Simulated scan of single mutants.
Amino acid sequence: MEEKKHILTMLVDNEPGVLSRIVGLFSGRGFNIESLCVAETIDPKVSRITIVTKANEPLVEQIEKQLRKLINVIKLRDLTGSRSVQREMALICVRAKPEARDEILRIVDIFRCKVVDVGPEYYIIEATGTEDKMRALVNLLKPMGIKKIARTGTIALFREPN
């Protein structure tokens, strides 16, 4: 059966050890977590965890059942597909030689990014968008010389009905 990417998001109690138990479910079953994002929600007692993993349908259903059994998991959703809004954020430090600065700024403008720090030989760029947009941006900046990159991985919310 074909593996595909799944985006699981869950509301959990904001308590020590909760993340460890959730990640333990994945590692204990041999699942790789491609990205993981955790942050407090508007309620300080609740956190949202977004996990991206690759697996076939029966395996994802199995892990969802196991996650739902955990006492600290309040709500779980699979946000794979078009019924969600998905974004990723990246900070990219790129070499900015004088002859490449104009081209980098054009790329930043085209991708609606922001230069958030400037040095004599680098720019740090803040970018937000889909995974495809991030991949395209990185591919265009690679020839300039990416020194380092920090990415959030995917975050997602269920699209509210009209």
Rank of each mutant, 00 (worst) to 15 (best):
E131F: 05
L105I: 07
L59E: 15
Q86L: 01
V52E: 11
A150R: 10
R48I: 01
R83G: 13
V23S: 15
D43W: 03
R48S: 02
G81C: 11
I74L: 07
L36Y: 04
F31G: 06
I63M: 06
V38W: 00
R87Q: 06
I149A: 07
N14L: 05
K69V: 02
L67S: 02
N139V: 06
S47P: 07
R83F: 11
E64A: 11
D117Q: 12
R77K: 11
V52S: 13
L91C: 08
N72M: 02
D117L: 09
L91K: 03
T130R: 00
G24W: 04
T80N: 08
K147A: 09
R21W: 07
E103S: 14
E121M: 14
I124L: 13
T50D: 02
F111R: 02
L105N: 13
V18M: 04
Q62D: 15
C37R: 00
I107A: 12
L19A: 03
L25E: 14
K75T: 01
K142Y: 05
V118G: 12
Q86E: 13
G119D: 13
M10R: 03
E126I: 02
V115L: 12
N32Q: 08
N72G: 00
A150M: 14
L25T: 06
T128C: 04
G30V: 04
E61Q: 08
E88G: 10
K65P: 08
E40I: 00
P58M: 07
V18H: 01
I104T: 03
E88K: 11
D13W: 01
A127V: 09
